[in-house]
Design a protein around this nucleic acid. Structure first.
Lengths: 106, 106
DNA sequence: CAACCAACTTACTTTATGTAAGTAATTATA
DNA sequence: TATAATTACTTACATAAAGTAAGTTGGTTG
């Protein structure tokens, strides 16, 4: 019946990307490190989910959370090496969307 | 507050890819057209969701549903031109997953 | 005729997501 | 100085999406 099983690594990667918001978070962080509230407003995610996703992505080793103990404390999120290597993939999505998503699809 | 709004076309494309199963369906169809039950067993999705996703993807113009009026009738799903152009993107995911997903991440 | 297969659909449960409000620490404003 | 605002969250609750299992229709095989 089944033609060919899917590679588990591919499935895993797809699983990360196919969680709502993760792609947009990574995409935003390609512009450099950002703070919680900045991500929150630029991608339109709620604090509840952003907090959840950032924890997940940190555990996957895709992003890094840095605390700057100034007053007031500043917390910045940025891509790790592993996260940065997602750039070509993001660029492909960008290219495809420019070529194939039409105004009326929005 | 917000650094830069995200392009709506990019967001839309990400929305398609970030729905569970769509990426895997497209990936499987890169191997050529396939029948419902074949997709069902190769990617491990339930009939209920496969049916839903195939309808969505057909509406987005990414896949095509063809009915062959033989006896018994045969129905095949395949990628349209728009769908086929997702190949480079899928290959990028494949490459990234091979390079960065480790055994212990699975 | 009973069991089987393909391609679904329906009913129901569980999980994920969305929304709104709350919190603690600090800072700005009237 | 009291009030309001900001950042980075968390908690509680409602709704939407996904998972599970069984049922349906049309045709086939033993």
């Amino acid at each position: 019946m089944n033609t060919s099983a899917i590679c588990p690594k591919f499935e895993k990667a797809m699983g990360i990307l196919s969680q709502r918001w993760t792609g947009l978070i990574i995409y935003q962080l390609l512009n450099g490190s950002q703070r919680f509230c900045s991500l929150e407003s630029s991608i339109g995610i709620s604090g509840r989910l952003l907090s959840e996703r950032l924890k997940d992505l940190e555990q996957q080793g895709i992003i890094r959370r840095e605390v700057f103990p100034e007053t007031p404390v500043r917390i910045e999120y940025s891509l790790t090496e592993k996260g940065k290597t997602l750039e070509p993939l993001m660029k492909e999505i960008e290219k495809w969307s420019q070529a194939w998503i039409k105004e009326q699809d929005l």
